[in-house]
Simulated assay, not measured.
Amino acid sequence: MKLPSHRIALLLLPLVLAATAQAQTVYRCGNSYSQQPCPGGNAIDATDSRSPEQRKAREASVKREQRSADTMEKTRQKEEAAALRAAEQTAKAERTTEKDAKKSATNKSKTAPAKDKLPAYRAPATAK
């Protein structure tokens, strides 16, 4: 089962916070970051500078966003299922209509052909 990216991010968030809580030196090497020094790399202070209130507010925000995402996903799945059922019902109705049309065409060909009636204006004149 593949986890959605937002769930993976939530799973990794505590690990990232725990890693940054320790006083580790992080080096910026060009556009990448490493725990090991590199030539021309700069040491960066990677400690979490947020207050406990800010951390709690962010965690609450992440939980709200997760609930919202879960709700939207469930709604989307229900809508897709309903659309699929509607499409299946439409296809079934079309097949039934086609079968009925074939059946009536077959029944018409089995009956005796009706004599063609000419309209009154085209009817042959009768002799008097």
Results as ranks from 00 to 15, higher is better:
residue 1 M to D: 14
residue 78 K to I: 09
residue 107 N to W: 00
residue 78 K to W: 07
residue 105 A to W: 03
residue 58 R to K: 11
residue 62 V to I: 11
residue 30 G to R: 10
residue 58 R to M: 13
residue 111 T to D: 01
residue 25 T to E: 08
residue 17 L to T: 01
residue 17 L to I: 03
residue 6 H to T: 12
residue 104 S to G: 00
residue 22 Q to H: 11
residue 24 Q to N: 13
residue 39 P to C: 01
residue 85 R to D: 09
residue 11 L to C: 11
residue 98 E to C: 09
residue 32 S to L: 11
residue 62 V to N: 03
residue 17 L to N: 10
residue 62 V to Y: 04
residue 110 K to C: 00
residue 67 R to G: 02
residue 96 T to V: 13
residue 30 G to I: 05
residue 39 P to V: 06
residue 112 A to D: 03
residue 23 A to H: 02
residue 78 K to F: 09
residue 98 E to T: 12
residue 83 A to L: 08
residue 54 Q to G: 02
residue 117 K to T: 09
residue 68 S to A: 11
residue 122 R to C: 11
residue 57 A to C: 04
residue 60 A to N: 06
residue 44 I to P: 00
residue 53 E to S: 03
residue 122 R to E: 12
residue 20 T to V: 07
residue 98 E to A: 15
residue 46 A to N: 08
residue 68 S to D: 07
residue 29 C to K: 05
residue 36 Q to A: 15
residue 44 I to S: 05
residue 11 L to F: 14
residue 87 A to Y: 04
residue 31 N to I: 09
residue 56 K to Y: 05
residue 117 K to F: 06
residue 49 S to I: 01
residue 63 K to R: 06
residue 6 H to P: 07
residue 38 C to M: 08
residue 97 T to S: 13
residue 101 A to I: 09
residue 49 S to F: 05
residue 82 A to S: 10
residue 3 L to Q: 14
residue 9 A to Q: 11
residue 49 S to E: 01
residue 94 E to T: 13
residue 2 K to F: 05
residue 110 K to M: 09
residue 9 A to T: 12
residue 36 Q to N: 14
residue 72 M to A: 12
residue 50 R to C: 03
residue 123 A to M: 11
residue 70 D to V: 04
residue 91 A to E: 14
residue 26 V to Q: 02
residue 56 K to N: 07
residue 114 A to V: 00
residue 83 A to N: 04
residue 67 R to L: 07
residue 28 R to N: 06
residue 54 Q to K: 00
residue 55 R to M: 05
residue 1 M to A: 12
residue 122 R to S: 11
residue 126 T to S: 14
residue 33 Y to G: 03
residue 77 Q to K: 13
residue 70 D to R: 08
residue 86 A to L: 09
residue 93 A to Q: 13
residue 99 K to Y: 12
residue 60 A to W: 00
residue 49 S to Y: 02
